[in-house]
Amino acid sequence: MKPVTIITGRAVPLDRSDVDTDQIIPSDWLKRVERTGFGAGLFGEWRDDRDFVLNKSEYQGANILIAGENFGTGSSREHAVWALTDYGFEAVISPRFADIFRNNSTKQGLLPVVVEPAVGARLLEEVAKDPSLEITIDVAQGTLEVPALGLTIEFPLDEFTRARFLNGWDDIGLSLRYEDEIESFEQSRPRFMPSTR
């Protein structure tokens, strides 16, 4: 993945909780065997509604998504992350992310920003009022800033994930640093474990 250090831009307020991955990318899109082109399917069914927030002209070109709590619940489909990044999102802000979605997003350079519920609610409100509001997320500092509001908050990110974002590290390469240990573990596995051979 590409290194990610600072994300600056405007945000889309998606004022819903429990946004599941079936909504982020409907299952019809899962039949594709490619990794690109999923942006067109992002929130596929909701986008049929002209008034859906993503369709509004004032939010075109935004690169940050703000949502309610429990974002990305449900299916493990990484296609949900591919759809968000392909559409142009670089970060999602929510009070709580589903585990698998969060994992998938950190593999693809989509930054999950966890905020207090009150902060999340305030951001949703302010961005709805003023779509031009600029937000800056600093991965190294672990801060989210909205200068126009005089708001700076810190968000949690474990050091390993932070380093991966900053350096754009490939997970497989990182794990293969321990190939010797993998080999010795393999030698020690009990014989009764199942195998297809």
């Binding site: 990484e78 593999k107 693809q108 474990d158 497989i172 794990s175």
Partner: peptide, 21 residues
């Protein structure tokens, strides 16, 4: 037993391991 995304599927195919917090 747990579900994983496609990047992790690739990781397990290549290494038979997963980094887990």
């Amino acid at each position: 037993a747990f579900g994983i995304g496609t990047s992790e599927v690739e990781h397990v195919l290549a290494t038979q391991t997963l980094p887990q917090l």
